[in-house]
Amino acid sequence: MARGDLSDVEWELVEPFLPLGGRGPVPDLRRLFNAVMWRFRTGRPWRDVPQEYGSWSTVYGAFQRWAAAGTFRMLMGGMIAEAAARDQVALDLVSVDSTVARAHHHAAGMAVDPELLDELEKAVAEEKGLIERGKAHRWLRRTRTATTWCVRTTKTHLAAERRCRRLSFVLTPGQDADSPRFVPVLEGIKVRGPVGRPRTRPGAVAADKTHSSRANRAYLRRRRIRCVIPEKADQVANRKKKGSRGGRPVAHDPDLYKDRNTVERCINKIKEWRGLATRYDKTATGYLAGLHLRGAVIWIRSLRPT
């Protein structure tokens, strides 16, 4: 077993989630899975996968099939459910934040169908018109070269619990703001237990000032979730300017807010894998699959014996 590969106990948790091929000989799933982990852990090209893991094309083909089928997403959900079954998930406080990964030039140059390229150019033209009128919605930070299309940066919005383990991911272009993604991140929290519906409501949510908005606070209030988000200076000034019409000051617990660092530590754990600290994948599907894989491995290696 090479450094970083799954142990026998860890493999017993992973194996039920990996589908077998529809035809041909049964592949060595453990070796393929360890190879995919090696690629994201080191950030090396797929062609550099060591021979001990088998042919690089076989490894890449398995990764593509698993990513398209949502295998890594289901694996991470299964590991969260396993932790919940062992009573090792704490939802008393969930922290939300985001991180940006710069795209390597190997992530550029994805071939685009000519018809799709024409549609993208029309979207750019419409966006330029909106920019001139001050009504732009910049969904992608992009560059165009000949018949290729690439994204320069990718932003990952995530929620983490007290033990620095990820609960949900939302992937967006690098220039997207944090506040509009606050609700989708929380909506992605689903902790399945042995029986009953999944748990989706944490006791409290901590986030920095970039997530401070009336809409986000109203969402937390409607779901009866304690809000631990400091108020922006301009929002405080605007409220005081209105006097009694500005409403009451926002309640904030500075002691509980100190525990928000758990999501930042979770980001550090994710970016220990070089293939995620920098984006080398041309497609968002591949990069998101790597994020789910890393999230699943973090959960697996944090489980305490029962």
Rank of each mutant, 00 (worst) to 15 (best):
A81Y: 02
E15A: 15
L140V: 15
V112G: 01
G61Y: 08
V14I: 14
G77L: 09
P25I: 00
P180S: 08
G290Q: 07
D97L: 03
V195Q: 07
V36D: 00
E187K: 14
P202Q: 06
T262D: 13
D259E: 13
A81K: 11
L171P: 03
A108P: 00
G4S: 13
I131K: 15
R222C: 05
P19E: 08
K155Y: 04
E12W: 11
M1Q: 12
L32P: 00
W46R: 07
S98M: 00
P194V: 12
G22D: 06
K258I: 07
A67S: 15
G70L: 06
G188I: 08
V191K: 13
D97F: 03
A123N: 14
W56M: 01
F182C: 09
E10L: 03
A237S: 14
A111V: 10
I270A: 06
R294N: 07
G43K: 11
A69E: 12
M110I: 04
I229Q: 02
R3G: 03
P249G: 02
T148K: 12
F169K: 03
I189H: 08
A277I: 09
A251D: 08
V36R: 00
D48Y: 07
A123I: 02
P173C: 13
R260L: 03
R44Y: 09
R3L: 09
R248Y: 02
